[in-house]
Simulated scan of single mutants.
Amino acid sequence: MSMDDRPALGRRGFVMTSLITGFTLATARAEAAPIHTDAAGLDVGEVQMPVADGTLPTYFARPAGVANPPVVVVVEEIFGVHEYIKDVCRRLAKLGYFAVAPELYARLADLSKMTDPHEIIAKVISKAPDATMLSDLSHTVDWAIAQKGDADRLAVLGFCRGGRDVWLFAEHDKRLKAAVAFYGPVAGTTSAIQPTNPIDRAADLNCPLLGLYGGKDPSIHASDVYAAQAKAAAAGKTVEIIYYPDAGHGFHADYRPSYNAADAAAAWAQAIAWLRKYDIG
């Protein structure tokens, strides 16, 4: 299947049928211009990616003319696959990766029209079953391999809620070789559709995981993060945690007031070094 072949699967039940244009409306913008990575030398675009019950709008970026590039699945924040997530994909593609970001919340709401992050959490994030998220991410890997991504060089990288999903996906999919979680919560409230926190299954990690956290982030307790690391280590798993003392939550998000340019650059360098350490790129 080529990236131009749109599978003829049903769209019933999917609210978002295309990705956000520009940036999310649900968070304040910083005055400084966000980073923009051009697409020169890349193949980029939006596709409808097949999943169990239809297709998800998905952004991809890959180096043009490169056979079997390593694959990085990029997992969004709560705000959708908007320009920031797309730019992250292009940054990765410039480094030789085939980056793929599915819109995991397409079934639940049109995130392009939502302006209140609290409403997003209440009406979208809390309603998203983890089993569906894990299935969608596994289908993302399947799709990338079908597009001639390297099946032996697979990684996942995500931000905020997506950082949590990185932990869970690394505990779920045995094909992964590396994982990077930017400020991903590892503990919290559970529910019937979100029954497990990352800390609960830290011993089941299938690949080395790097966690990048802000020391001034009040929403994630360092004690939980280090407890998850210890649980993984006791099971012989590799987890490295790096804290940036002056950074808050969302410190990598260059379109938000929380952006910390120095720590974002340092954390990004650590993320890429982690992928390369485990032969992803």
Rank of each mutant, 00 (worst) to 15 (best):
I85E: 06
A234Q: 08
G65E: 03
V51F: 14
K216W: 03
L25I: 04
Y84W: 13
R90H: 06
G96R: 00
M3T: 04
V75S: 09
V186T: 13
L210S: 14
L176W: 05
S18Q: 11
A228Y: 05
G149N: 00
V66D: 03
T140I: 07
A33E: 08
I272V: 15
D217L: 12
D136M: 07
P102M: 00
H221V: 15
R175K: 01
E46R: 01
D150N: 15
I145A: 08
P208G: 12
W268Q: 09
I20S: 15
A32K: 05
H82K: 05
K237S: 12
Y97E: 00
L104E: 00
S18C: 10
C160A: 12
A262E: 05
G13C: 08
R62E: 01
A131F: 07
W268L: 09
L275I: 07
A64P: 10
A151D: 00
N260A: 09
E171D: 07
L212G: 14
R107I: 00
R276M: 05
R164V: 01
V75A: 11
A155G: 14
A179N: 06
D150H: 09
P245V: 04
L209W: 10
G162V: 03
G188Q: 04
G65W: 08
L212I: 10
H221G: 15
D53G: 10
L111K: 09
P198G: 12
I35A: 13
A230I: 01
Y97V: 06
G281T: 01
K216Y: 04
A151M: 00
D200C: 07
P245K: 02
R62Y: 07
M3V: 12
V66P: 09
N260H: 14
Q270H: 14
N197W: 04
G45R: 04
E83F: 04
D142S: 15
G80Y: 07
M3Q: 01
L25W: 03
R161N: 11
V100F: 05
D53Y: 07
P208V: 07
A253E: 01
V72C: 12
A178F: 03
L19N: 09
D87H: 01
G250P: 11
I193R: 11
A28Q: 06
I193K: 11
A109N: 06
A8K: 13
A40S: 13
G211K: 03
V44T: 15
A203I: 05
L95H: 13
D152L: 06
V124W: 13
A230P: 04
L157F: 14
D217R: 10
A30T: 09
R11G: 13
V74E: 11
D217P: 13
V100P: 06
T27G: 14
F98Q: 00
K174E: 09
Y243E: 06
A101T: 01
A269D: 15
S135T: 07
G281A: 12
R29W: 02
K86H: 12
Y97T: 05
H172D: 04
A122E: 13
S223I: 08
L92W: 02
G250K: 05
D142C: 09
Y259W: 12
A122C: 07
W268R: 06
P245N: 04
I125D: 01
W143N: 04
C207V: 11
G184I: 00
Y59R: 05
A131L: 10
R201E: 11
F60K: 11
R107P: 08
A33M: 06
D150P: 10
N206P: 09
Y183G: 09
F23R: 14
E46C: 11
T132S: 13
W274T: 02
P198C: 12
K94E: 01
V166P: 12
A261N: 01
